[in-house]
Every structure is written in C-alpha cells, then in structure tokens.
Design a protein around this nucleic acid. Structure first.
Length: 466
RNA sequence: GGCCCGUUCGUCUAUCGGUUAGGACACCAGGUUUUCAACCUGGUAAGAGGGGUUCGACUCCCCUACGGGCUGCCA
C-alpha cells in the first residue's frame, strides 16, 4: 500500500475543542504508527468567524499534546482559486450545473412544500435540466448534479457499511454565487490534493461523507478510507459544551494535566486494546489500530483523567516534567520559577512526583522548596505546634547540628527523640512538618530535610521555637 | 418530519454464538502508614425493553424506547 496520509482539519472559529484534540490524536497515532504522514489544515474559509488567535490556539494545543504535523499548516482559504477551478471543471464534465435560484426562492419553495403538507423538502433546482440558452445574465451558484436514484455506500472502518439513498441527498452547492467554495467542495479538493488516504474525523460528518463521495466520483478521484469516530460527551452524556467546564485543550494545560497523561486518557476514550489502560505514547503507537475504535460516544471522566495523569507524573522523567511544569505555570498565569526555585524543585521532584495527580497538586506538595523563610504556616498546620511539641522541637533543634545528613542518621535520631519522650513518630512529624513547610500535605519529613539541607532545616526550626 | 449512527457495572471499556460477563477509574470495607498521595487485600456494581433466529445469544435479525448526528449559498 502507498504511504498513509492523514490530516486534522480544525476550523479556527474559537478555541480548540478536546474532541478535536482527540480526533487529531487518532489521526496522528494512525499515521505515526504506520510510517505515514500527518498533516494539518486550517479550515478558515468562513472569513466571518475565523480569527488568527484561534489558529494560534490550535497550533499551541497541538504542540502541547505533542502532535507534530508534517510540513506547514495549510490554509484552506488560500486554496480558494483551486476550489473554484474544480467547480468549473465539474461544470465542464457535466457533473454540476449553474443554479440561478436565489436564496429567497429556495426559502419560498420550502415554505410552499411545508404548506402543502411535506414536513421537509429537499430542494429541487429548476435549473438542473435547463437549456443553457435560457440562462439569465445573473450571479449563479454551482450545484452538484447528484444522482437521483440508487444509493451511495460509505465503507467505514469504524461504522461499517452505511448506505444512503440518493433521493435523500440534494444537489448541494459546491461554489457559492460569490465565487467562494463551500465546505463540501473544499474538503474533498484539499484532501485529494494533499494526498489524504485516510479520513479520520468525528461521526457528525458521516452523512457528509455520502455527499463528498459524490464529489470524488464526479471528479473521478480515489475515495479515501473513511473512519468516523464517535464524539466526546460531557459527564452528563450531553454534547460537550462550555458548561461542562474544560472544553478547550488549553484549559487542560492550565489545570495542570501533563500532556502524556492527557494523550493516554484521550487515547483510551473510545479506543481500547484488550486491558491496556496505562501506557506511554510509544506503547500506544505499537498498539494503535483503527479497529480498536468503538462506535458509541464516550463521556469525559475527570477522576479517571486525574488518575491517569498521576501515573504519568510519577513515571515521568524529571527533566521533561520540570520543563512541562514551567509550561503549566505560564498557561495558568502563575509566576515563573526563579532560578533558586527551579533548582529546589529539581531536587525535590523525586519525592513530590509520586504524590501528585496534577501539576497543581505537585506545586502544592513542593511548596516547602518554593517558599523561603520565614515559613508562613497555614491554620491547619499551626494546630500541630502546641507548647509540648514546641518544647520538643526546641530541644532537638540544636542537636541537629551533630547529626550526619543522611536519611538513616536522621531516622535514627528522630526515632530516639520520640523514644525519650514516649511519643509516636506521628506526634513529632506533625510539628516538624509545620516548621519545615507550613502545610499539612507534604512529602515525608525526612525527604524535606534532605532536600533543603541541614542549615536550612535548622534555620526553619529555629524560626518556630525561637 | 426524513435519513443515518449508537445503547455491557456510576464512568471508560473487554467479549467478535457457548465465560461464574473480565479489566480500569470511582465507590465501600480492611491493611500499611509520618500528613497528603501511593501501595496491598477484599467487596458492591452491567448486557435499555420486547419479539424472533439458534441446541445455545451481550454477540445475528426485527420492533419500541432513549441518546446523538445530518438534513444551509456554516465548517
């Protein structure tokens, strides 16, 4: 088989939807897993609604998710002359015709049909079979001369064979009266020109595939392999919308989800390979196939997303995590790391990454290394600093000077302190935690002492007892 | 209205005519414990409803219900 070529074709009319992100992911996975190409085309033919900001959001979203595309992103609008050329070629081939009906006439036609009892009517242009000699000197739209009998069959990898009766499909407009192409024409021409072999997209396009098939046939072009994947719904099963919270990929980055976890979760949403749940992108590439895609819509489950992300943070490589955390801070509008904080975080990462599901949690747990003296403790943490605890801290702090700074030595020392006071380690760990971090949720006190070092530990303890 | 697609634990899903219907997240109970998280053990929990086909249906067919999509000179 020739090289596989897939594409993602988002329209820049807002933010980048997670559904679009997952579609992009499937296209990317399929192309990369098969040594193919993955292209990006911006469907910006709707000049009214397309914005450069939205295009930027798409590029950023794709980049964040690690979905690299081959070549430059293509602008669909830039191809408008080519689209018009094809429309005119269809005219020449007799597979399309000039339609002089105005939008008002079409509306009137429908109204009449409805008044006559039909609840809905497919518009039948009177110009379809008109003698060119009768053509008025007016603007016209170019309509597809769709077959009126027979059926069009979509052989879809995900949906199976789907049959549409041709009399259900109208003569869609391919070129508007102002000379601009419609979506139905533009996608087909672009996909053909870009050599797209597999069209993997949302199943909201399933019906469109039938119409588009007619364009391919009208031009004598090879029809791509179709794969219409189900849409993503909100937790309540309704179509995902803004009221469900995060719908834009950028939101996910800003909420601290690591991109690897996001990829893993999104891959599993609507796709399965036996019992595989947690996997790296490399493993996903080895397992991925179009056959594993299901046919029913999937709901977003933020708990599972978090759980998946927790695994990826725990298993992530430090350097990569650090880099991504900085990206998260920027996306969330939080202050960037100072050099000392970056260094501290790098040292602390080993003990915070396995206790965080998101970077939000990770930053919280790493507070002890991001803050500096004097440590301001929160209310809950302060409760552990009662007079008795303070007394014990007061006694042990100077002795810390003579403890060698290893986990074993510290453990032996603190265990001994507990023994002499007849208390459990928890009783001592709590106030230590308050002094060291000022919070109740932190890494182990040993890890914190090791990370910040002997001098800083003693200084922080002295602050609270002094 | 017409056409098309879908429906397995709360959620994501496995099963591709014969299983005690499996896994994961969530949840509950217990364990571990230095807070948080993690981890270990166990548990609750599913084939929308109704007809067929078949020796045997979650699986194949039909109907109904529910959900979704398309039905634009939007993409």
């Amino acid at each position: 088989m020739a090289q596989i070529v897939t594409r993602i074709a988002p329209s820049p009319t807002g933010y980048m939807h997670v559904g679009t992100a997952r579609t992009a992911l499937f296209n990317w996975l399929f192309a990369r897993a098969n040594g193919g190409k993955f292209l990006l085309r911006i469907e910006d033919t709707d000049r009214e609604r397309s914005t450069p900001e939205a295009t930027e959001a798409i590029l950023q979203g794709m980049t964040w998710l690690g979905l690299d595309w081959d070549g430059e992103a293509v602008s669909q609008f830039a191809q408008k002359d080519r689209h018009a050329e094809v429309a005119h070629e269809m005219l020449a081939r007799g597979t399309a015709y000039k339609c002089f009906s105005t939008q008002e006439e079409i509306a009137t036609y429908r109204a009449e049909q409805e008044a006559a009892g039909a609840s809905y009517a497919v518009f039948q242009s009177p110009w379809r079979d008109a003698d060119p000699a009768t053509h008025p000197d007016q603007p016209f739209a170019i309509r597809m001369m769709a077959p009126r009998t027979g059926e069009t069959v979509i052989d879809d990898v995900v949906q199976g064979k789907v049959t549409f009766r041709n009399d259900q499909l109208d003569d869609m407009i391919v070129l508007r009266s102002d000379g601009t192409p419609t979506y139905m024409l533009a996608v087909v021409v672009d996909d053909h020109d870009m050599g797209v072999t597999h069209v993997i997209r949302g199943d909201d396009h399933l019906s469109n595939a039938a119409r588009q098939t007619m364009v391919y046939e009208a031009m004598g072009w090879d029809i791509p392999v179709w794969a219409h994947i189900p849409l993503i719904h909100g937790p309540d099963g309704k179509k995902l919308s803004k009221r469900h919270g995060a719908t834009a990929v950028g939101d996910y980055q800003a909420q601290g989800y690591p991109s690897a976890g996001m990829r893993n979760y999104l891959t599993r949403l609507g796709w399965a390979h036996a019992d595989a749940e947690l996997f790296t992108t490399q493993q996903a590439l080895e397992m991925f196939s179009l056959e594993g895609i299901g046919r029913s819509p999937a709901r977003l489950d933020f708990k599972k997303l978090e759980s998946t992300c927790g695994w990826h943070i725990a298993h992530g490589e430090d350097a990569a995590l650090l880099h991504e955390i900085e990206g998260y801070l920027a996306a969330a509008g939080l202050p960037a790391l100072r050099d000392d904080q970056r260094a501290g975080l790098a040292k602390a990462l080993y003990c915070v990454k396995e206790r965080a599901k998101t970077f939000v949690e990770l930053i919280e747990k790493a507070h002890f290394v991001l803050t500096s003296r004097p440590i301001v403790a929160d209310e809950a943490a302060l409760k552990h600093l009662d007079p008795v605890s303070r007394g014990i801290l007061n006694e042990l702090t100077p002795r810390l000077q003579n403890v060698s700074w290893t986990k074993d030595a510290l453990e032996a020392f603190l265990t001994e302190v507990c023994a002499t006071h007849g208390i459990g380690f928890g009783k001592l760990a709590a106030p230590l935690r308050t002094a060291l971090a000022g919070k109740t949720a932190t890494p182990s006190v040993y890890d914190m002492m090791l990370v910040i070092g002997q001098d800083e530990t003693i200084a922080r303890l002295s602050d609270v007892v002094g």
